[in-house]
Design a protein around this nucleic acid. Structure first.
Lengths: 334, 334
DNA sequence: CTGAAAGCGCTTACAG
DNA sequence: CTGAAAGCGCTTACAG
């Protein structure tokens, strides 16, 4: 275990060339099965580990995928992006890649500093987890290795995106409220804040339109300021019978606000939301929500990334992944 | 941006050798300041990125640290280990290292499969985040790169550990209750279950001893069975005026149980706990707890890891990191 | 089936 | 201050 063992050492032991050892260990043609097996066994016994750097130097691939995530997404106790990150890493490992995670600091985002893992040629491609500032993204898009945006997209750019089908899911869950007999349905979220909130708003709107229900601006409640910081919710004077909240955390806040003002959920007001995070289960009552189907998103993202690494020309556009409605106790028939 | 630029190309442009370019870019002696600046500027303009693999091949270091974490710690919505992981990665980045995260699957843990990042020589050292099965750890300890256990230790092993000072923190927070005038103080936790609960129990005991307060077995309430599964809490018939709970989640349960039985917190009974997790803030009232001081733990772990990479002989033993008491509303003067 | 040769892009002594 | 030489551990044509 102490002496460094490399292909040369194994080659010596068998009186063959390094080329033969390389072929044997990498399951390439040109070695007899018998010799291959013996070499493999010896490598195993000696605890041989291929020198990854040497391989990379020749193949020009490092078999690492970078995961870039802004500090603001990992700061809170809520850990949606972290669990996505975990899933990404599992999938990458299964595909013989490793995941290098880097957290983008606010200063670096402002100063357009490229990720270190890119500058140091440590990754073959980058998955950007969660939206970044526009100026930064424009700068980032000048890099010459494959990139994928995960969980967001930007209008002006051609970078492939993996996103949950917020529009369709929102349409579905709003529709389910309408089917339960609700005719006044509000929406909670700053619709100018992120594309995901916007899409959810539009899906909600589509459901209303299809049922000839007009949108009432009174029913649209903002949840955050321009910088994304959550603000206190101001309930409408005229109350709807149901709310579609743009995420669980806000739905959780909404339910508490409603209770404080004397409304019962779901008896007086139904609440549904998105993301199926911890907030949807610690709320009283537990919240009917949409699970983003992270599993599917992650599988798709890693598969596309590896295809792009092997063929950088190919593009995939915006890939929409359908969510699943999780029925709980916060919504009921009217 | 298209043509691959390497040191050779830059050397050509200036009619100097690759050695000179290398020295210039790496701030080594042996280049005139003037030339150095010109080379650096050109490298920047051309978007030169050093080939990390080539550097590694020579230096025998990859400048990556692995973070190994069992799947069971990242499966739940609660994300303590993820946030630790995030902090580790930030610190590593600041120290010019990258973090490669790998999630250990249950099967691989059972089958003693070494982490891929190790087998593929992608990391210079490994930080193990959270306890693993004993047999697996014994196997893991045969590897020949530096290793650190984070947030746990094992009695039989010599691997350096970074752990929170549960004993001392518990002593401190119990002492703070005594200073508030409490004389009957209970402890909630199965003291035979984990070393962390045991240490917290002993710290609690030490505080009582120092104030000549006898321990009353009636006041010790178990919280989980032998397998770690949480059980319903059985309140003592004779109620103490305060409880030290072994973690926030159990404190949260305790508060709800107390309320159900008609006790007010903190008016009738004060409650303090450990970990400063989401449970401590969603409880009503919010819980006085001990923050593990992840910041300090992480700083220490990364610093030690890098020292070990540069000098693998040196050992650091069990490093205890002090926690910080976070005062909230669940405890008060008697 | 086997191997000699070249080379990936750097760094590290060492000589001038 | 500058550079020629050697070499890190592999893989990839290519020749036999």
């Amino acid at each position: 275990m102490k002496e460094k063992v490399n292909m040369g050492k194994i080659a010596e032991m068998f009186n063959v060339s390094i080329v033969t050892v390389s072929k044997a260990l990498n399951d390439k043609d040109g070695v007899s099965d018998e010799l291959r097996e013996k070499i493999k066994k010896t490598a195993e016994d000696l605890g041989y580990r291929p020198n990854h750097a040497a391989k990379s130097l020749k193949t020009q691939k490092v078999y690492n995928v970078g995961i870039l995530i802004a500090n603001r997404y990992v700061d809170s106790q809520e850990a949606y992006y972290f669990s996505v990150c975990g899933e990404l890493i599992k999938k990458l490992t299964a595909l013989e890649y490793s995941g290098i995670m880097e957290i983008l600091q606010p200063d670096d985002e402002r100063d357009n500093k490229m990720p270190r893992m890119f500058l140091e040629s440590k990754v073959d491609g980058i998955i950007v987890l969660g939206q970044l500032e526009e100026a930064y993204l424009r700068h980032l898009e000048t890099i010459d290795i494959p990139m994928i945006y995960f969980d967001f997209y930007v209008n002006y750019s051609n970078i492939d995106s993996i996103i949950s089908d917020n529009f369709f899911s929102s349409y579905q869950i709003t529709d389910s409220l309408i089917e339960k007999g609700h005719k006044q349905i509000g929406f909670v979220g700053n619709i100018h804040s992120t594309s995901s909130i916007q899409d959810r708003y539009l899906g909600y709107y589509k459901a209303l339109l299809e049922h000839q229900m007009d949108i009432d601006n009174e029913y649209i409640v903002s949840d955050r300021d321009g910088l994304g910081k959550l603000i206190d919710l101001k309930l409408p004077r005229k109350m709807p019978t149901a709310f579609v909240a743009n995420c669980d955390q806000v739905a959780y806040k909404l339910i508490n606000t409603l209770k404080k003002e004397g409304y019962e959920v779901p008896k007086d007001v139904s609440v549904v939301s998105f993301d199926n995070t911890i907030y949807s289960t610690i709320a009283q009552p537990q919240i009917t929500t949409v699970d983003n189907n992270v599993e599917d998103m992650v599988t798709t993202a890693t598969r596309i990334m590896i295809k792009k690494i092997n063929n950088p020309i190919r593009t995939y556009g915006r890939v929409l992944i359908k969510g699943k409605v999780i029925k709980r106790e916060s919504s009921q028939n009217i």
